[in-house]
Amino acid sequence: MKKRIFYSKIAIWTFAFCPILRLLWLGLHDDLGANPVEFVERSTGTWALVFLLLSLVMTPIRLLTGQVWQIQLRRLLGLWMFAYACLHVTTYVWLDYGFYWPDIVKDIVKHPYVIVGFAAFMLTVPLAATSNQAMMKRLKSNWKRLHQLVYIIALLAILHFWWLVKKDVTEPFYYAIVLACLLSVRLYFKHFKRHGVSKSSQNRQLV
C-alpha cells in the first residue's frame, strides 16, 4: 500500500509539473500566441481548477469502491491547486497589471467575475496554511470544518470561469458538470447510504 501511494505521488508530481514546463517552453520560444498574458492566465487558472476537482475525486472513489488509500493523495492535489492558483494570481497582478494597485483594486471591486475569483483565492490560503499534520492535530474537529471551505471555493471558481466567458459557456459548463457529479455522489451517500458507509469505512478520521 505504501508503495502504491509513493508511486502515485511521483505520478502526481510529474503530471503537475508538465503545464508549468510547457508554459516555460512556449514562453522561451515566444510561442504563447498573440495574447501571451491571457494564455498564461487561462492556463494556470484552468490547471488550478483541474487540481481542485481532482482533490475532490478522492472521497467519491472511497464512497463508490470502499478503497481508502487514495485519500492520502488529497493533500498533494490540494497543494498543487494552491500552487497553480498562486501562479494564476501572480500572472494577473504582475504580467497583466504590472503591480499597478489602483487598477487592480478597481478591477477586483468592480467586476463580479474578478470578485468571486479573488474570494476563491483568499479562501484557499487558510486551507494551504493548515494542510500539514501539525495543524491537523491542533485544530482537531475544526480542521474538517475548515476544510469544507473547499466546496465553496469550487463553486466560486466555476462561477469565476462562467462569468468571465462572454457568451459561449461550453467550457465552464463541462467543469460545472464534473463538480456536480462529484458533489452528488457525496450527497447521495450522505442521505441514502449513511449506514453502509459508516460500516465500510474503517478510516473515518481520514474523511
Binding site: 514562453g27 515566444d30 498573440a34 495574447n35 504580467l95 497583466d96 497589471y97 499597478y100 487598477d103
Partner: peptide, 10 residues
Amino acid sequence: RIGAGLFAGR
C-alpha cells in the same frame, strides 16, 4: 496591446 509580449504590461 497584442504582440507587445509577456512583460509589456498595459
